[in-house]
Computed example of a mutant assay.
Amino acid sequence: MSDTPAIQTVGLTKDYGDFRALDGLDLEVRRGEVFGFLGPNGAGKTTMIRTILALLRPTAGSASILGMDSHRQAVEIRRHIGYLPGDLSMYPNLTGHDTLTYFANLRGGVDWSVVNGLAERLDADLTKKVGDHSTGNRQKIGLIQAFMNTPDVIIMDEPSTGLDPLVQQEFQAMMREVAAAGRTVFLSSHTLSEVQRAAHRVGIIRGGLLVDVESVTDLRSKALRTVEMAFADPVAADAFSTVEGVSNVRVVDRTVTLSFEGHMQALIAEATSGRQLIDISTGEADLEEIFLAYYRTDGPDDVHPAATDAEVRA
């Protein structure tokens, strides 16, 4: 497998007049991973996607996909990617099959056994007109066109819109299979449970700035959680006061309940130092709680009126 990143941005900046939608974005997405891209409305997610796909021209900085410059080599890049925009438009009077035939012809042809397999997995009816489909069933057709050419990189903006839980489960399996084959999924989503189940790493963007990139495991290991510990003997109320990351300690006889933010090794080391720990339970940190922690002090960033909704929408 090549060491060239699947997606790379260096100082990527996009201004709309005096509003900065992207601010010096440095990001590297590896091959063979599902990468989740999180942020509230107006944070810059869709602008970032449109810019790396050469649908928008950056104000400054650069972007590459599979080592190819996203603007100078945009045509060649199209041969290697699948893309599902957040506002996919399709001809309402065409059937699903006709729509996919149209996309397949634009690509110079696809393996229809792959298309039919995807349709079966997603339970997609390709005989009905697109305009007669519900939002979720139209989204299935969009997903099929993104996956059907077996691309090296699949970029999707809010792909789970309208999908029922069973189809979401199948979609997550499809993403994992892509990564297992050494290919890459870039997933911009508000469905945090979906990102938590499918992504290897996540990037969190706020106000056009990339504020964190970490594995889902590392993010959850450092998040605030509730821990309850039972001991063989009574415990002093201040027993854990010196452990960094501990707060809200409550002691009732032999049971200690506290809030903890950090790696569990430090807490367990203190708990077992001169004490007999009988039992420990912890409320597993959820990605949604972690995400909200980045935005707890402020609401979603305002959208500048000079930029269109499609250009700055998350």
Rank of each mutant, 00 (worst) to 15 (best):
L94T: 00
L122E: 09
D123C: 01
G136L: 02
N105V: 05
Y91M: 09
V110E: 04
S160W: 04
G131P: 06
M156C: 14
G131Q: 05
V115Q: 04
T99I: 02
G136C: 11
L100P: 11
S89L: 13
M174A: 05
T161E: 05
I141M: 06
D157I: 04
F147Q: 13
N93W: 03
V153I: 15
N149F: 14
T161K: 08
M175H: 14
L166G: 13
E177G: 13
V178P: 11
A180Y: 13
S134Y: 14
D157L: 15
T99V: 05
T95A: 08
D132G: 00
Q169S: 15
G109S: 03
F103T: 01
L88G: 06
L100S: 00
D152R: 14
M156P: 03
P165A: 05
D123K: 07
V130T: 11
I155P: 15
A124P: 03
S113Y: 04
N105H: 02
T127Y: 13
L94C: 08
T95W: 11
D164Y: 12
G142T: 08
G162K: 11
V153S: 14
Q169K: 07
T135M: 01
M156F: 09
D132E: 07
H133F: 15
D123T: 15
N137P: 10
V185F: 13
D125T: 07
N149G: 14
V153Q: 14
E177L: 12
L166V: 15
A179C: 12
A179M: 01
L143D: 05
Q139D: 05
L122F: 00
A119W: 08
D164P: 15
A180E: 08
T135Q: 11
D132R: 11
N93Q: 03
L143C: 12
G182T: 02
Q145Y: 11
Q172Y: 04
D123W: 11
P159W: 07
D111T: 07
G117A: 01
Q145I: 11
T95F: 03
A119C: 02
H133V: 08
M174T: 13
G108W: 04
N105D: 10
S113D: 11
T101C: 00
T135Y: 03
G117Y: 00
S89D: 08
R183L: 08
Q172C: 09
G117F: 04
T161M: 10
